[in-house]
Design a protein around this nucleic acid. Structure first.
Lengths: 131, 131
DNA sequence: GGCATATTCAACCGAATGGTTGACGATCCC
DNA sequence: GGGATCGTCAACCATTCGGTTGAATATGCC
């Protein structure tokens, strides 16, 4: 924590660059989750997921609150605002295609408890399986 | 190049995670530039900038076209669209705050030839100088 | 041809990343 | 108290990243 203070965009974009972390964010979009539950769909150790969550928390993309012995992870979409503004400036796209995102989500998420469909996106949850 | 085919979002976000590369994109927003001219404001070797440009090209954030002995770099904002859509889905921010971006740019860019103001953002062009 | 310019290549280096395993500290519950 | 569960810590490992330097490859110009 002695780091000077790198541009917040650095840490936000770096956090988003990992498919596991993006998948975690997508899961948290549905609901707050405990660390163990976040880890469940991934074929990777709990410690690894814990590290990913630390990266997301460092980028302020999530917050973590310990209640009892379970630590709850909550999406913090505000952290994306600066990054989003930065990106939007380049494209001058059509204003926010939220419909496209909802369509994307429908293929990404299946049930409310983290049971994912085995579409093309399922690969994101077992990145090592990619040949 | 034997890599399977990672999610394009991986490479786009990873490319955006570096302040030097974001600065390059900002410069290219003004105009196409040759590699040497891109490198000029940075306190880093030409080879390093060449690598950064390769990363940006790999993420399809820029294209490079060789005319004569000089290679021109051109911004390709389309590559940001998918990433932007992905991000927007989390925030449900107010639709595209382009004004905020233009204000940001005014502090970022000074002249049309790569002369940057020495505001807070100038640090991005000599990242090593950050204590 | 011969020299200067533009850009990349190759080898190397230190630091950061993403993962593992095993031990550890908290907390819940009987 | 004591066992099970939750989560992190510490050490380790292989790979990637961001940078350097020096040589090599085009290309333009006289």
């Amino acid at each position: 924590m002695t780091a000077p203070s790198p541009d917040p965009l650095d840490t936000v974009f770096a956090a988003l660059a990992d498919p596991t972390r993006r998948a975690i964010l997508t899961m948290l979009l549905e609901d707050d989750m405990a660390v163990t539950d976040v880890a469940e769909p991934f074929s990777m150790s709990l410690a690894a997921i814990s590290k990913h969550l630390a990266v997301l928390a460092d980028a302020r993309l999530i917050t973590q609150e310990k209640r009892g012995r379970v630590k709850w992870c909550k999406l913090e979409p505000d952290a994306l605002r600066a990054a989003s503004v930065w990106m939007q400036g380049f494209g001058q796209f059509d204003p926010v295609d939220l419909d496209a995102f909802e369509r994307f989500l429908e293929t990404e998420l299946d049930g409310p408890t983290g049971a994912f469909s085995d579409t093309e996106n399922a690969a994101e949850f077992d990145a090592n399986s990619a040949s």
